[in-house]
Design a protein around this nucleic acid. Structure first.
Length: 593
RNA sequence: GCGGAUGUAGCUCAGUUGGUUAGAGCGUCGGCCUGUCACGCCGAAGGUCGCGGGUUCGAGCCCCGUCAUUCGCGCCA
């Protein structure tokens, strides 16, 4: 008895199957019609098999009619391809199916998006016809990589003693800081659920409830504008939380999980085994970023002293006028040519900077070349060269000002130098932890102290630090994991003491009553025996993006929305019917066009 | 909300300084072809140049507006 659709998949048959019969179903990938002989590449999820028909076959007339992306069922004889016509690039390339019967299961209209081939197509077409896009080889493969990554993580987390729990999707507004998606309540007119920006409070409650190790591949919802590496609307996190742990326990629990994941999926790339823990302050000074790409070997240094009182009046003047001004040096090994330095200078001007000062060293010019070298003289130039460990053929760029104003620009310059000079190894995964984030930061907009990151983090020094220290000097037990310049995880040791929590909010101007109102569930829970706990969340989408080597999240997401946060395939968001709105007690107040 | 880029055949794109009838490849349709695997050859159909307005003797091209897509800023861990 034969199955209605197939006895084998399209990726299955080998030379050992020759002389047997088979039934295959799949999509017509390509047709090559030679008149008296006709080939069909039949494709399914598993692979591709060549089908051949000639005028002696009773199904030849049908075979002549089929077109790309029709779904057909074929019966036929498995046979070895004639000598010399084997295709070594295909796993099934030693055999072909001589078709005896073809049944058309589903015709396809003229394609708005070819499945064959891999050129780029406009996003709106790809999204509107996502089901066709997903048939294409690369995207199909990326999506499969994603499901394998997720199942790898799930298996691993279970293995090391974590328990998976599902937390509510319809919940209360959470304190992450992003805009909430709201869902109106029918039963409670005028009230709204919020979709969780992260299961933050629930997972902390699970710790209070005594479950010790929680994880979840959790959907998260944020109503913010997207970027290439930030999906609109919804995204997934590997969310986890542990009780009775220190920061060190958390980092050393998850570091092997991440390294093993990348080692399993790295392909031809390499994974750096060393994962340094870098304090936030150090990361900013060395790399100009709190998510440094460590594939780039460049490390910046302060060289303020060499410019103070020097003949380079621009920098010397700034230093004399403001004790907080510093000069940072960005070394550029092998960048010692006028052309390259000028190119960097031009880039800086395009970025809206006055320029990018530089020195470079050529054979026979002891004191260095370039305008800055002339201005500060050979001794100072030589001192800089020694400090930065540079030599003939190298260059060095300089930025000056208050570090908090220019560190991002310096970091961008570091990135460009690394890329332009091919110092950054593109075939590597390089990780680091960034630790000791500031607990508070100064909000210029609100003219007050505000939380730097998660308000539920434990300040280093606890309640005592909050009571005695300048808030802006307090660090948090807060950490990120970074890979190749992407933040892939973020977490903290939580503040489990109600008094400390109230004090922490008080410093930002939020009263005890407001804390009780906004975070009532958690505040109440902390009154009844909360264990010390902490956790983190990995961006699943970003992990997969790095593993697949793509720079846009749409390349690894099944049904992404466009940049306007619309689902072009399903037509979401869409109008609600008057009946729906009536039941929800909602009247629309639309902006005038 | 703001800034940059893009918008021409079903799809990907070209289109000179503003000048006659807007082109190519893929796909589609028709014909030929028995060893291709991006099959080959011959032929045909297919266009509101995103949309609206303006300048001009004349606009795919210049100007203004608008819409759509995208990248970035703001926003967001």
């Amino acid at each position: 008895m034969t199955h209605a659709y197939r006895t084998h998949t399209c990726g299955q048959l080998r030379d050992s199957d020759a002389n047997g019969t088979t039934r295959l179903s799949g999509w017509v990938h390509r047709v090559r019609d030679h008149g008296g002989l006709l080939f069909i590449d039949l494709r399914d999820h598993y692979g591709m098999t060549q089908v051949v028909a000639d005028p002696d076959s009773p199904c030849f007339k049908v075979a002549e009619k089929v077109r790309s992306e029709w779904v057909i069922r074929i019966d036929g004889k498995v046979r070895l391809r004639p000598a010399g016509t084997e295709n070594k690039d295909m796993p099934t390339g030693l055999v072909e199916i001589y078709a005896t019967e073809i049944e058309v299961l589903g015709q396809a209209a003229e394609l708005p998006l070819p499945v064959f081939g891999e050129p780029d197509y406009p996003e709106d077409t790809r999204l509107k016809y996502r089901f066709l896009d997903l048939r294409r080889e690369t995207l199909h493969k990326n999506i499969m990589t994603r499901t394998k990554v997720v199942s790898h993580l799930r298996r691993k987390m279970n293995d090391i003693g974590f328990n998976e729990f599902s937390t509510p999707i319809l919940t209360a507004s959470s304190p992450e800081g992003a805009r909430d998606f709201l869902v109106p309540s029918r039963i409670h007119p005028g009230k709204f659920f919020a979709l969780p920006q992260a299961p933050q409070q629930y997972k902390q409650l699970l710790m209070v409830a005594g479950f010790d190790r929680y994880f979840q591949i959790a959907p998260c919802f944020r109503d913010e504008d997207p970027r290439a590496d930030r999906l609109p609307g919804e995204f997934y996190q590997l969310d986890l939380e542990m009780s009775f742990v220190t920061q060190d326990d958390l980092l050393s629990t998850m570091q092997p999980v991440v390294l093993e994941l990348f080692n399993s999926f790295k392909g031809a790339k390499t994974v750096r085994a060393d994962v340094p823990r870098i304090p936030y302050d150090v990361a900013v000074r060395k790399y100009g970023s709190d998510k440094p790409d460590l594939r780039n070997p460049i490390e910046m240094q302060a060289v303020t002293e060499h410019f103070a009182g020097s003949g380079f009046k621009v920098f010397a003047g700034m230093i004399a006028n403001d004790p907080k001004v510093e000069v940072w040096a960005i070394p550029a090994p092998k960048g010692g040519s006028r052309a390259f330095c000028d190119r960097m200078n031009g880039w800086a001007q395009k970025e809206g900077q006055p320029g990018l000062g530089y020195v470079f060293w050529r054979e026979g010019e002891e004191g260095g070349a370039g305008p800055i070298a002339k201005n500060i003289g050979p001794e100072r130039t030589e001192a800089i060269r020694k400090q930065m460990g540079l030599g003939v053929g190298d260059a060095c760029f300089f930025v000056a000002g208050r570090p908090e104003k220019f560190y991002k620009f310096a970091g961008d310059a570091r990135t460009i130098v690394g890329k332009e000079l091919n110092l950054t190894n593109e075939n590597e995964f390089a990780f680091c932890w960034i630790v000791d984030f500031p607990f508070y930061e100064w909000s210029e907009e609100d003219k007050k102290v505000d939380f730097g990151h998660n308000p539920f983090s434990m300040p280093q020094g606890g309640l005592k630090a909050l009571e005695s220290q300048d808030p802006l000097t307090i660090k948090a037990f807060q950490y990120d994991m970074v890979c190749n310049g992407y933040e892939i995880a973020s977490g903290s040791i939580r503040n489990h003491s109600p008094e400390t929590m109230v004090k922490a909010f008080e410093i930002t101007g939020v009263t005890k009553a407001e804390v009780e109102e906004r975070f009532g569930g958690m505040y109440r829970a902390f009154q009844f025996g909360a264990p010390p706990h902490g956790g983190m969340a990995f961006g699943v989408d970003r992990l997969v993006m790095l593993i697949c080597g793509v720079t846009n999240l749409r390349e690894i997401t099944l049904f992404p929305m466009n940049q306007q946060a619309q689902d072009l395939l399903m037509g979401a968001p869409s109008d609600a019917t008057p009946k729906q709105l009536r039941e929800l007690h909602i009247r629309l107040n639309l902006p005038e066009k």
